[in-house]
Design a protein around this nucleic acid. Structure first.
Ligand SMILES: Nc1ccn([C@H]2C[C@H](O)[C@@H](COP(=O)(O)OP(=O)(O)OP(=O)(O)O)O2)c(=O)n1
Ligand SMILES: [Mg+2]
Ligand SMILES: [Mg+2]
Length: 446
DNA sequence: TACATACAC
DNA sequence: TATGGTGTATGTA
């Protein structure tokens, strides 16, 4: 068992977490066979130090080359030796898992299936598809704030942190393999032009607060998981949404990026939007027919006031976007509001539970969203071929341990349920079974 | 309880 | 030259 810390995200409660059911806790003095056990064909870098590309913006990289650079920069360091020790611990656990595996008998397997199916049945009966859960997560958050505060960084690969540790990187830098939790000096080796800027926590907190003000409009009980992400239960919002006027579903969007030197960079929805009411929008028309976003171009020339009362500068070109009634529309609207208010983009996932919503929010990142419709077939189709590593709570170690059992995707969790039943703790087993059914928490609590 | 490990951000 | 800081959770002794 492995996969501790598991569930974390899936909302308070309902954490799972696997842990080795192991006999000896530490018992140092391994047989450190100098041979790095299995580095495999993989560039010779141990598993736990390889580039973690389980992140948006890291598709199609030359992983081999990147791992080569990491190895080059790390070889022989204290850190490297320590990681190697941990790697061996993990390999030892896999060996022990294998031994345990061989001791499982046919009849035990049969029993395992029976027990597993009993549990699966129970979970299936409590499946709840009635809630609409949203997970929203800012794109390259710290980096995006820094780029907003210093637009010169916008078209450069950059990261936030220092020479010894990076908190995150922008998407441009990710193309080079530069990512969060990587030392800055390795980032520089992967991308010599990389610009590293120091952190400004106060700014991140400030912007986070602005984002949360928007989230609260859709679910006052939303649950923040960090400065840059949160879960929302939007079920109630959708019920109320039909009563909203077109005005209330309209967002004033600037055409440029809000970094103008001469024009107003304030949120146009603050002062400008109310003025537009008399020109373009009628408060009382709530035609429920608008299913998708309607866009209209505008310039501020028609208005009596063309300068912003907040900053005194002229308003920029803008357009109005009126959003429809569907969950997708609402979430698009929420993301548009965030973007207008903060100048930063967010991505979102919409699904019947937190576990799925979390996976979805990564799917069309950056600046995108994805929805899983609330019916069982759609959920199962989404989950079947999904690599277990995509699920929040299954990290590198858990993934490796599962791989050793032939489990790579969520449907593999189902197919190997008999094994998992015998090899993992009840808590971990429950966790796995819920995952392979696409079931997760439907509670979002403050 | 204290400690080790896993995971997320 | 150099590989973070914080919080949550599980399992074992
Ligand atoms: N190991 C990590 C991971 C993240 N962060 C910080 C910096 C990130 O900007 C912020 C949010 O984390 P995310 O995982 O959401 O990453 P990003 O928002 O940077 O990128 P993405 O677009 O993938 O969400 O938390 C950190 O300090 N250390
Ligand atoms: Mg983010
Ligand atoms: Mg995040």
């Amino acid at each position: 068992m492995d996969a501790i810390g598991s569930v974390m995200n899936v909302t308070r409660k309902e954490k799972v977490n696997l842990q080795p059911i192991q006999e000896n806790q530490l018992d140092d003095n391994q047989n450190l066979s100098e041979s790095d056990s299995k580095a495999g064909e993989n560039s010779g870098l141990m598993n736990r130090m390889r580039l973690n590309d389980n992140k948006a913006g890291m598709d199609g990289l030359d992983k081999e080359k990147i791992n080569q650079v990491i190895l080059e920069a790390s070889k022989g360091s204290r850190f490297y030796e320590n990681e190697r020790k941990k790697e061996q611990q993990m390999n030892k656990r896999i060996e022990e898992q294998k031994i345990k595996l061989q001791q499982i008998t046919e009849s035990q397997l049969k029993q395992g299936i029976i027990e597993a199916d009993k549990l699966l049945d129970e979970f299936e009966n409590t499946r709840d598809l009635s809630k609409t859960i949203v997970h929203i997560d800012m794109d390259a958050f710290y980096a995006a704030v820094e780029m907003k505060d210093n637009p010169a960084l916008k078209d450069k690969p950059m990261a936030v942190g220092g020479n010894s540790m990076l908190s995150t990187s922008n998407y441009h830098a990710r193309k080079y393999g530069v990512r969060a939790a990587m030392p800055g000096f390795i980032g520089k080796k992967l991308c010599p032009e990389l610009v590293i800027v120091p952190t400004h926590f106060d700014r991140y907190t400030e912007i986070s607060k602005q984002v949360r003000e928007v989230l609260a409009e859709y679910d006052p009980n939303f649950s923040p998981m960090s400065l840059d992400e949160a879960y929302l239960d939007m079920t109630e919002h959708f019920e109320k949404r039909f009563h909203l006027s077109e005005y209330e579903r309209t967002v004033v969007c600037r055409k440029t990026d809000g970094c103008s030197k001469t024009e107003c960079n304030c949120d146009l929805n603050l002062k400008l939007k109310p003025l537009l009411l008399y020109h373009e929008l009628s408060r009382h028309n709530s035609s429920p027919s608008t299913n998708t976003a309607v866009k209209t171009d505008h310039s501020s020339e028609k208005l009596s006031t063309t300068t912003c009362p907040l900053c005194g500068k002229p308003y920029p070109d803008y357009h109005l976007v009126t959003f429809g009634m569907s969950p997708d529309d609402s979430v698009n609207e929420m993301r548009a509001k965030i973007e207008q208010k903060t100048g930063l983009t967010a991505s979102a996932g919409i699904a019947p539970n937190t576990m799925l919503a979390k996976v979805c929010s990564d799917k069309n990142k950056p600046n995108g969203q994805y929805r899983i419709l609330p019916d069982r077939d759609t959920v199962m189709e989404f989950i079947t071929d999904l690599p277990t590593r995509k699920i929040s709570g299954i990290g590198k170690v858990s993934e490796t341990m599962l791989n050793a059992l032939g489990v790579y995707t969520c449907k593999d969790l189902y197919e190997q349920r008999a094994l998992l039943y015998h090899l993992y703790s009840p808590i971990s087993f429950n966790y796995f079974m819920r995952i392979c059914l696409g079931i997760g928490s439907t509670f979002v609590e403050r």
